[in-house]
């Protein structure tokens, strides 16, 4: 009965077909082309309700909080919306808000739907997700206060994202066949002629990680403290 069944791709008795209901229960991802986006809609006003009830405690009333996670809103301008490139990313420091980085609106929808609120992921209704996404966009001045986000108009909103043109896949860290961008050579002698000490641990950071000696093995050469009988001989 099992003759010939060890051929590639055939493992008799193993696994079973997934049912449509099962696939529906788990297949929640939404792609940039909106494949996977459930039909529906939500208003900014409704979004504000959801936000204040379920999100603001962690992310701040205006999505500005840095307490639990980096700010969600801030750092984007009307000019960025026009250009599709967030200008402050060229010059700014490391503080980057969600809206500054967001290049695909699907990402925000998908993530809130799957993971937020943090302590109760997947508890939002489809309408609530549309609404709260609309609200965040409104906080970022991307959509007006009377906006209703829906599966019908989400593609238009995509065209307003401040950083929609801000990403690139043309680099050496995605495709194994691509060329690395940084090159060094295997020089063996007289390579660096002047060795410049460019950076050392700043004084204020010396204690930041606790008692370092207590994080080393008490024997062997990798010790935190020299032995009782003193300094190198």
């Amino acid at each position: 009965a099992y003759a010939g069944m060890t051929t590639a791709g055939q493992y008799p008795g193993i696994g079973r077909t997934a049912t449509p209901a099962e696939i529906a229960a788990w297949d929640i991802d939404v792609r940039p082309d909106f494949k996977g986006l459930p039909p529906g809609s939500g208003s900014v006003a409704k979004g504000q309700e959801v936000w204040e009830a379920k999100c603001a405690s962690c992310h701040g009333t205006f999505g500005e909080s840095n307490e639990v996670f980096q700010p969600i809103v801030g750092g984007t301008t009307a000019a960025d919306i026009k250009a599709g490139r967030v200008k402050s990313l060229v010059t700014g420091g490391e503080a980057r808000t969600t809206l500054m980085k967001l290049s695909t609106i699907s990402t925000l929808w998908d993530y809130i739907n799957r993971a937020m609120p943090w302590t109760a992921p997947k508890s939002l209704t489809t309408e609530e997700v549309y609404a709260v996404v609309a609200y965040i966009l409104n906080l970022g001045d991307i959509v007006p206060a009377d906006f209703v986000l829906s599966d019908k108009n989400i593609a238009d909103v995509q065209q307003k994202l401040p950083n929609r043109n801000g990403v690139s896949r043309a680099h050496g860290l995605w495709d194994l066949k691509a060329t690395p961008d940084v090159k060094n050579t295997a020089c063996m002698s007289r390579c660096e002629t002047d060795v410049t000490l460019a950076s050392a641990l700043p004084e204020y950071a010396r204690d930041s990680h606790g008692d370092l000696a207590a994080q080393q093995r008490a024997i062997g050469p990798g010790r935190g403290e020299p032995p009782a009988n003193g300094t190198p001989k």
Binding site: K87, T107, A115, V167, L173
Partner: peptide, 25 residues
């Protein structure tokens, strides 16, 4: 899929302000 951790994180900011996406090797 451009998921959250492919769009908002694990993207590498270059000097020109562009994020390298899907940088993963």
């Amino acid at each position: 899929w451009a998921t959250k951790d492919e769009t908002l994180h694990y993207v590498d900011l270059m000097p020109d302000g562009v994020h390298r996406q899907y940088s993963s090797i």
